[in-house]
Design a protein around this nucleic acid. Structure first.
Length: 527
DNA sequence: CAGCGCTACCACACCCC
DNA sequence: GGTGTGGTAGCG
């Protein structure tokens, strides 16, 4: 054992010891900094009724959703850019937790580690929200602050006309993440007891009101057609929406398909002309509240100099990631903060937690008073692509979901695979009115009109559940122009649900209703 | 080991004029 | 030239 010298005990008395102490202090400083950098947030205080699990981390969004669904508590999936846990470089990862637990963790992160996004789940009831942005250098004459004020008023007027919902700027949480180069706002509408069915529905509504704005701006703009926003493109989009609307909305809302088809089939009818006139009256009423200059100011130019909307239309897709209050993008320094012009005040008080909770798009409490806004025919727009989970050529087969009549799906699959082993169902459209299912086939082109397979056009089958038959039609332009439709083929009795239930006392009408009611409730409840 | 969901755009095949 | 289909770069 070494003895403690006087110098060592009382501290530095020479240059050597001084250096040593400096070194130790420096090490300590480093340790402190390091600790601060990697500090572990304090545990959330567990209550007896409180959450069982703090959080769980996933590399894949789907795994996170699966886990959240299997738990009994109300959990949410939050995405973040993963440098915040010390690895990866902006790669997205997924956190499953409750809002309360998340806020407790999130509020303790330093500003540069708040890189988080809410995932607005597919099909979930949500608040009306907007991403408003434009490049400042490309639009030096635009006044963003004034544009936001006009835009909010424009949206409020449309809400009143279309849904009889009254609101004002006081109901709009206004968040800002602008820089010198880019004007950027997030608007979140917190209208008491009002929410939208889902964010895709919002997309349809917004698409509609922006299109009306574009049409107006174009007609009152220079007489010549400008690139990007021609009237032609507007009308062709409308046509698309009639023919394709039912495909885009097929899974969740077969009723939409009915009305879309009715719309198309009774064109030229007086009733349709009436509704067209009514629609343009609504549009005129809204537009009439503004001066031409105010409306024109909402159109900006993108980096290619093309005219485009101030409102980003790309944020209404399924499972959209939407940046959280106080978060920034990876590698950027512009967190979302409350804008100076914000007039919304949370019910409790103006504190960060209340703002955070109110800013969550899908944080909508279920209540019987809640009015759920759904899309109507005018809002629907074309949606040609169908989400396929897998990649490559087999995607269409893997991405295909069962129709409400899986037995019919199986029958058709078996049928086509006798001729084409790779044949499959690309998608289906269910028309509950008339009990019709239209199946678009994949890798199956045999047409009864030409008695051979077409070279590049797949065929479709129309299943008539009432008549218990099916027939074939096809995409080939020649067959189409002839209005070709094959003769009827019988559907085997075994594909009908009644075949299974007839002698089964376990199934009766009540059980069926209960099951579908339970499913409906499950769908409407916030996740 | 490790993101997701589009959408605009292009290339190509086939059929029509 | 029009239509349907498939593949991909790139955006939000």
């Amino acid at each position: 054992m070494s003895t403690i010298t006087r110098n060592l005990f009382y501290g530095a008395s020479n240059k050597n010891d001084l250096r040593k102490r400096k070194l130790i202090e420096k090490c300590l400083d480093e340790k402190v900094k390091d600790f601060k950098r990697h500090k572990i947030p304090k545990d959330y205080k567990q209550r007896i009724t409180g959450p069982v699990v703090d959080w769980k981390l996933f590399y894949r969004q789907q795994s996170a959703f699966n886990y959240a669904r299997d738990q009994s508590e109300e959990l949410h999936v939050i995405a973040f850019e993963s440098s915040s846990v010390g690895f990866g470089d902006g790669k997205r990862m997924y956190l499953v937790t409750s809002y309360d637990v998340f806020w407790n963790y999130y509020k303790q992160l330093s500003s540069e580690k708040k890189l988080h996004y809410e995932i607005i789940p597919e099909g979930a009831v949500c608040k009306l929200y907007f991403d408003l942005e434009f490049s400042i250098p490309d639009n030096p004459d635009n006044n963003g602050t004034e544009m936001v004020a006009i835009f909010i008023q424009y949206v409020c007027l449309w809400l009143e006309e279309e849904f009889s919902v009254k609101c004002s700027r006081k109901d709009v949480l206004d968040l800002e993440a602008s820089t010198d180069k880019k004007f950027s706002r997030h608007l979140i509408f917190l209208i008491p007891d009002v929410a939208f069915q889902d964010n895709v529905t919002i997309g349809c509504f917004i698409h509609h009101i922006i299109e009306e704005l574009n049409k107006y701006c174009e007609s009152s703009d220079l007489p010549k057609v400008e690139n990007g926003l021609s009237l032609d493109s507007c009308t062709s989009t409308k046509k698309d929406s009639v023919t394709n609307a039912c495909l885009g909305n097929q899974i969740n809302s077969p009723k939409n398909c009915e009305s879309a088809v009715e719309d198309a089939s009774c064109c030229g009818d007086d009733g349709v002309l009436d509704t067209v006139r009514k629609k343009s009256q609504i549009s005129d009423r809204v537009l009439g509240h503004f001066t031409k200059e105010q409306l024109l100011s909402l159109i900006v130019r993108n980096k290619h100099g093309e005219k485009t909307s101030f409102c980003d239309m790309g944020v209404y897709t399924k499972n959209r990631n939407f940046r959280l209050y106080l978060s920034r993008k990876y590698g950027k320094n512009n967190p979302l903060l409350v804008a100076a012009e914000n007039e919304f005040v949370p019910l409790s008080s103006m504190n960060d937690e209340a703002i955070f909770m109110d800013s969550l798009i899908a944080n909508v409490k279920f209540s019987s008073r809640m009015k759920i806004l759904k899309s109507n025919d005018t809002h629907r727009r074309s949606q040609r692509s169908f989400s396929n989970k897998g990649a490559s050529s087999t995607a269409c087969l893997e991405g295909y979901k069962a129709s409400p009549y899986p037995e019919v799906d199986a029958f058709l699959l078996e049928h086509v695979r006798k001729l084409e082993p790779n044949g499959g169902i690309r998608h289906w459209t269910y028309f509950s009115q008339g009990e019709l299912i239209v199946y678009e086939m994949a890798n199956y082109r045999f047409c009864h009109n030409v008695e051979r397979s077409h070279k590049s056009n797949n065929v479709m089958f129309v299943v008539d559940l009432k008549k218990k038959i099916y027939y074939q039609k096809c995409h080939d332009p020649v067959c189409k122009s002839q209005g070709f439709k094959s003769s009827d083929f019988p559907l085997p009795e075994s594909v009908f649900p009644s075949f299974l239930w007839e002698d089964d006392p376990m199934f009766d009408g009540e059980d069926e209703d209960l099951c579908s009611a339970a499913e409906d409730i499950e769908k409407t409840l916030p996740l």
